[in-house]
């Protein structure tokens, strides 16, 4: 089917590289691997550019393929929880600490310790601001599963955060009282 939208590859890279890289980074916890996945995703898009019909379709396609390639990469590497944790400390944690909010950095770090399915829906919900319906379409998963993973993931992350951030919250409240 002919369509009017004629995207420039370089322009699409400029526009979406941050999204693709961030999704891959938060799914894998490895900057090098995330960069590699992002390159592969864009090269794949270059081969399928003729079939992409609109800017919205490009964004949807990039999100879907990035999540899929990240899951493939994790499966290939069979990263165990401990390995991932250590890796995040080495690669991801350091960068996260450069951010202004220590609470944000801690949350981002804790997110990477969640099960993959829960991590995926939380990243799409809170990084990409997608609705559960959009997440279901992106991950090609049933809506009920997405909603369940969202609830469970949020609950688990909150529990982890409350456990590890007591000191931070106490300080925050103390500052507020002042």
């Amino acid at each position: 089917m002919a369509h009017e939208w004629q995207p420039q590859f370089e322009q699409l890279v400029d526009e979406h590289q941050s999204m693709v890289f961030s999704l891959a980074l938060r799914m894998t916890g490895d900057r090098g691997l995330a960069e590699e996945i992002a390159q592969d995703v864009f090269l794949e898009m270059d081969r399928h550019l003729g079939r992409i019909e609109s800017a919205e379709h490009a964004r949807f396609w990039l999100r879907r393929v990035t999540m899929s390639r990240s899951a493939d990469a994790l499966r290939r590497r069979r990263v165990r929880f401990f390995d991932l944790f250590v890796e995040i400390e080495e690669h991801h944690g350091a960068a996260a600490e450069e951010r202004s909010s220590p609470l944000g950095a801690r949350l981002e770090h804790l997110l990477t310790t969640l099960p993959e399915a829960q991590r995926a829906v939380l990243v799409l919900r809170y990084q990409e601001d997608l609705t559960p319906e959009e997440i279901a379409a992106t991950l090609e998963a049933p809506l009920a599963t997405v909603k369940s993973n969202l609830q469970r993931g949020l609950k688990l992350l909150r529990a982890k955060a409350e456990g590890s951030l007591k000191e931070f919250i106490r300080k925050k409240e103390w500052v507020r009282e002042l």
Binding site: A38, Y126, Q127
Partner: peptide, 24 residues
């Protein structure tokens, strides 16, 4: 409040400059 914190924590990261160069 927790969801807001999470949303802020999960802002998109800028891609490394090497990404586009290597990709091209």
């Amino acid at each position: 409040e927790f969801e807001q914190e999470l949303q802020q924590a999960l802002e998109r990261r800028p891609a490394p400059p090497s990404l586009k160069r290597r990709l091209m």
